[in-house]
């Protein structure tokens, strides 16, 4: 069991200093901007909660949030069942298991802008295999102009990029099931579905929870991949929260509204992180029993 020791603070001090430097100071800059206004020349004056008020009324932010939630829900609805399904079909051991693990990990290790580039090249009607094939069978597909084509591309790209993560975690959960469980199920003449429902699913639940929350969180912050492929277009069709924020802060230099936007965005993430943390610690406690 753990022992009480206040000197342990010295061991975490380096982390505290480093992360404070990278997190607290920049965050305070954001807070600073969010309550001030400027007419240039670095002259700032107090604006109170004006920016927050403005952003909460701004249709632009609500639309971006709506698109973001739609995107995150869709990719979760596809990636989680697909990932579990793939994990159930993976070879249990041997050379093929290694081959599958390595090949499946590959998309996870590709720089995010290159993921965008890959799908750009793959999806273009003139040079891409996918775009060319769809065009050849008569489907009107152009991800830079069509609303549905753009969404479909961004979603398929994310499924391509991240389903393996869900599959790997589910696979790790499956590996931890002792053979005796299957043995008992066999004696009880359990159906395939019952084996999945009462043995495999409960054993996978812990890691699956982590997978779902990680995927939700990361899809909620997605920036690079859709930015490279669609640039947030056509129009604003695929402008998710991060894309909109960067556009506002670094593109238009609307510091006040962007800072208020950032803080509210961060708040949402904090709430989700708290749920995540609570789930994880309760799982750890369950494991410890």
């Amino acid at each position: 069991m753990k022992t009480d020791n206040q000197k342990a603070w010295f061991l975490v001090l380096p982390v505290l200093v480093l992360v404070s430097f990278s997190a607290v100071i920049p965050l305070m800059t954001v807070v600073n901007y969010s309550v001030q206004d400027t007419f240039g020349n670095n002259v700032f004056f107090w604006a109170g909660l004006e920016w927050f008020d403005q952003m909460l009324r701004s249709e632009r932010m609500w639309n971006a949030l709506g698109r973001q939630l739609a995107f995150s829900s869709i990719i979760l609805a596809i990636e989680v069942p697909l990932g579990v399904f793939v994990a159930l079909n993976m070879p249990k051991k041997g050379v093929w298991a290694s081959v599958c693990l390595v090949l499946m990990s590959l998309p996870l290790l590709i720089p995010w802008n290159v993921v965008g580039t890959i799908w750009q090249i793959f999806g273009r009607v003139d040079i891409g295999l996918l775009g060319y094939a769809l065009d050849a069978i008569g489907i009107d597909y152009n991800y830079t102009q069509g609303f549905y084509a753009a969404w479909a591309t961004v979603i398929v790209m994310d499924v391509w990029h991240w389903t393996s993560l869900v599959a790997l975690l589910a696979y790790a959960g499956l590996q931890s099931i002792p053979d005796a469980y299957y043995q008992a199920a066999k004696i009880d003449q359990a159906s395939r579905w019952a084996v999945f429902r009462y043995i495999e699913l409960p054993k996978m639940l812990g890691v699956l929870m982590i997978a779902i929350l990680l995927r939700f969180m990361d899809s909620f912050m997605i920036y690079t991949e859709p930015f490279v492929v669609t640039g947030g277009g056509p129009g604003n069709a695929t402008t998710f929260l991060s894309i909109d924020l960067v556009k506002m802060a670094l593109g238009q230099f609307d510091l006040g509204p962007a800072a208020a936007f950032s803080l509210m965005y961060f708040l949402v993430i904090m709430v989700i992180s708290f749920v995540f943390y609570t789930v994880m610690t309760s799982l750890d406690k369950r494991d410890a029993k």
Binding site: I25, L27, V30, M217, M221, S262, M270, F276
Partner: peptide, 21 residues
């Protein structure tokens, strides 16, 4: 928990303040 929130922080939020810092 505070460490965890930093793993989950959107880089877009930090882009501008990092630049200035």
């Amino acid at each position: 928990f505070w460490l965890l929130t930093n793993r989950m922080a959107p880089p877009a939020v930090f882009a501008l303040p990092f630049f200035q810092l």
